[in-house]
Write a protein that binds this DNA or RNA. Structure first.
Lengths: 346, 346
DNA sequence: GTTGACTTCCAAAACGTTTCGGAAAACTAT
DNA sequence: ATAGTTTTCCGAAACGTTTTGGAAGTCAAC
């Protein structure tokens, strides 16, 4: 409500001086500066952001569009990341806004409105696809942006990603070391970058050890999708004794599918994401997570550097994935130990 | 990049006329209007939102601050609601932004910046407390707002709420009808409006049937909180045979706690929220949900009416809660039927 | 007491839009 | 032809801030 003019009038100063005092310029005496600051604090003056943005030609805003699949919004852990990111951006005076995409609208249109209306200084893209039209749009507009997850774009862009390939490869090798021969994969939609990399990791491990990668089923990255995929996986003639799930949510669905199947409870499972609920499933879900508890902060810093004009090539981070052993990755082992005397090594 | 002035110049028209043509005023001829619209579409003109906001004195924005408890952000189902809400608001040209609250900052400060900086036309408050300082702030500023969940504020305000009281009362009566005597409650922090109402419903049912309401344990509204609360509940001298959990997440924690306890698997459980994962627990979680699959749309409509200046008293909705029976609410029953020949009536 | 340097302040322009109050042109009715 | 009405357009002001380019005032040095 209160604006600069009123504040200036009440102090007997010009608008200019008050503005410069608040912004900490050096050409205003310490005394008046103190006077201005005090008055501003007392009246609770807050600059009108529309006016400031108009003049500064900066939105002071970073947006992330949140894809909302029908009945199922993106993974909960996005929000933890975004929250940390917002926190860090705020230190530089930037606000992070999360814009849910209305059903009628495409994520692309959403991005378009953001960048062409000059509403944002930068964008963050999540749920990145291998060929993502949003990336092309943003590149053509020259807007700074960072994606959570690599793409196969020819032109380099800033991104942060977990090394899902290595994570799933190593997890598969772990299963192999445990004596598994039939190792299945409940995969996410391959258009998604993360889903593809995870699947390729699984395939790579099988390939390098000469095992079959036939036990593959794809589904939506939800509990329901995991449930359905696991069902088809377990209905084939050769059944997996271990399953890698692309996400924890799919793993939860897989667990339920196995519960409904005779001897399903001997199948070992590993997920990915380390959702809060994963520690509470039955059995507790062995899973993976991207290392570093500051992913959100890293993203924020990438965004800031992108806004500062740093080259995209310099703004690419791939973080290792760590394995979190709980109970679900050793289910057949326990039985195998009973049946055949195989010894656990951990 | 392109602005009204350029567009007008290229058409040989005045800024005024172009502006009015785009806004669909009647005092511009059909022919020029078509010409303007075409040119705007071709150049991809998007009005500069900062300028428009400054002039219109409207932010075209509704904000919701998302509380992010350390390590655990608000319930996932908020997002489904918010997404539907955003969708509906978009129809009226309003954008919904979700602002995560940085750790260093209080939700109140966040609200303050939003309203005093004239960044928003209205606010949506979630995770409402019984005595919520955000409500007071917004009331004092005269900003339209809607809360998700009632408060005990003396001055009426717009809200939408589920009838948690009736839901938990009825669920408790259901347990009583099933023959339970010792019915526990894993409660959420009582400062939260929803947690309090649910607890009062549980107490009311016990009170009206003369049963004890001693089996109460409170915890954070998370899996971990439910786990801890259930543990203390089951460690008393008299143990519950049925437990109502304030949220599904707490129910998931409770399930795990029971799993670790001898004969814990005979304890019946009911949760609330109908999270996607609830259908996939073991046993599948019986739960409750606020009726109507358009809560988000209802909220949006309340917000629009609040912005239009309708009186808060007219903007209060309490929606009934429906019970979703799955397996977890009849665990002891099955055993009891074996043990004592009690017959299930459903 | 004039010069130059420094400090402290300010008027005015600009950002891109919307909107008020007309003005010119084109009809209509007399 | 003239007055009145309607249609179609536009100039200029405003929204609240930041920033440019000085203008006064002060002080020290000669």
């Amino acid at each position: 409500m209160s604006n600069l003019k009123q504040l200036a009038q009440s102090l007997g100063l010009s608008i200019t001086t008050v503005s410069r005092a608040l912004d900490g310029y050096s050409d205003v005496s310490a005394k008046t500066k103190a006077r201005v600051l005090e008055a501003a604090a007392k009246t609770g003056y807050q600059p009108n952001v529309a006016a400031r943005r108009l003049r500064r030609q900066r939105a002071e805003l970073v947006a992330v569009t949140l894809p909302t699949a029908p009945g199922h919004i993106g993974p909960p852990h996005f929000l933890d990341i975004l929250s940390a990111c917002a926190e860090h951006l705020a230190l530089s005076g930037l606000n992070l806004v999360i814009a849910p995409v209305p059903r009628g609208q495409s994520e692309l249109e959403m991005c378009q409105r953001f960048v062409d209306g000059q509403r944002v200084d930068a964008m963050l893209l999540v749920r990145t696809k291998r060929n993502d039209e949003r990336v092309e749009l943003l590149q053509s507009r020259g807007i700074p942006f960072v994606t959570l997850g690599r793409t196969e774009s020819a032109k380099p862009h800033a991104f942060l990603d977990g090394d899902g390939f290595a994570g799933f490869r190593d997890a598969t090798l772990r299963f192999i070391a445990d004596g598994h021969i039939h190792i299945g994969h409940v995969a996410g939609p391959q258009a998604f970058s993360f889903a593809h990399h995870r699947r390729m990791g699984w395939e790579a491990a099988l390939g390098q050890t000469g095992l079959s990668s036939a036990l593959l089923a794809e589904g939506d990255p939800t509990e329901q999708g995991g449930y359905a995929a696991a069902k088809t996986l377990m209905s084939g003639s050769v059944k997996p004794t271990a399953i890698l799930c692309a996400t924890d949510e799919m793993a939860v669905g897989t667990l339920r599918a196995l519960r409904e199947i005779a001897s399903g409870n001997t199948v070992s499972i590993i997920g990915h994401d380390d959702l809060p609920m994963s520690a509470f499933t039955d059995p507790p879900l062995s899973t993976m997570r991207v290392t570093g508890d500051d992913i959100g902060v890293r993203i924020a810093s990438l965004l800031l550097r992108a806004i500062d004009g740093e080259a995209p090539e310099a703004l690419q981070e791939i973080h290792p994935v760590e394995f979190l052993p709980r109970a679900s990755h050793r289910r057949s082992q326990r039985l195998a130990a009973n049946d055949a005397g195989v010894q656990a090594d951990e």
